[in-house]
Amino acid sequence: MEHYNMNLTLKVWRQPNKTSDGKFETYQVKNISSEMSFLEMFDVLNEQLVMEGRDPIAFDHDCREGICGMCSMFINGRPHGPWHATTTCQLHMRAFKDGDTIVVEPWRANGFPVIKDLVTDRTSFDRIIQAGGFISVNTGNAVDGNAIPIEKDHADASFAAAACIACGACVAACKNASASLFLSAKVAHLGLLPQGYPEKKNRVLSMVSQMDKEGFGSCTFTGACEAVCPKEISITNISRMHKDYLFAGLSSEK
């Protein structure tokens, strides 16, 4: 694809801290290369702001290669921007044209309060994981392949779910700010493998009850989460999670 440069107008949410009111500010960036990533474009803008003696825009990022899930930006009304199955750090500026106006907002959900500018506090996800998203015992070193027989379908479904990077795009997109896609991915990823299976019931019950405490809504199966997920986690995981919850709740002794 041909390389080109572009000038852009950016409308970015600025908020000094958790408690203060924020507002949109408009910035002009010039000579942005179509080969830059979206975050690199923000680096250019931030350098410009620093030179002018202004406060640079705070945004989350870490790996910049689409695996850590930190780069949470709501770009032109879509989590992670216009490209399918792509994180913000992997979104390239060739997705835009010269003269475009781009609106960048933080994730909006009560479970993800804004800390500063585009950075949100997503420790609610950590607490959901802490509630049950683990295997309690040390499973030891990697054993010989096929030493534990695992059904191919289960292994595939588990691996597909394990691709979730907990970025929170599902919550950001969901009209109910539900964390169901995230939670269900973790439940499927662990519960479908023999090591995670024994704790399957308690896991789903504890994680769902933590999700309730954190201020996320219920799933109404609109499918928006699946459509924006950078890792293409399937919404069928949510049905699987509902099934696990139903059986776990009905068969629980307490």
């Binding site: 409308k11 949410w13 949109f24 709501f74 032109n76 009304g77 879509r78 989590p79 609106v103 907002e105 909006r108 959900a109 009560n110 479970g111 997109a173 009209k175 109910n176 700010a177 539900s178 201020g215 996320f216 809504g217 219920s218 109404t220 199966f221 609109t222 499918g223 928006a224 989460c225 699946e226 459509a227 924006v228």
Partner: peptide, 25 residues
């Protein structure tokens, strides 16, 4: 009511119909 209360501050630009049907919303 509960679901609506989970996002006290909305977006400037909404996701709208991208990825979901009107009736589901």
């Amino acid at each position: 009511v509960k679901n609506r209360s989970m996002r006290s501050k909305g977006y400037q630009v909404n996701l709208g119909s991208r990825g979901s049907t009107w009736m589901s919303r």
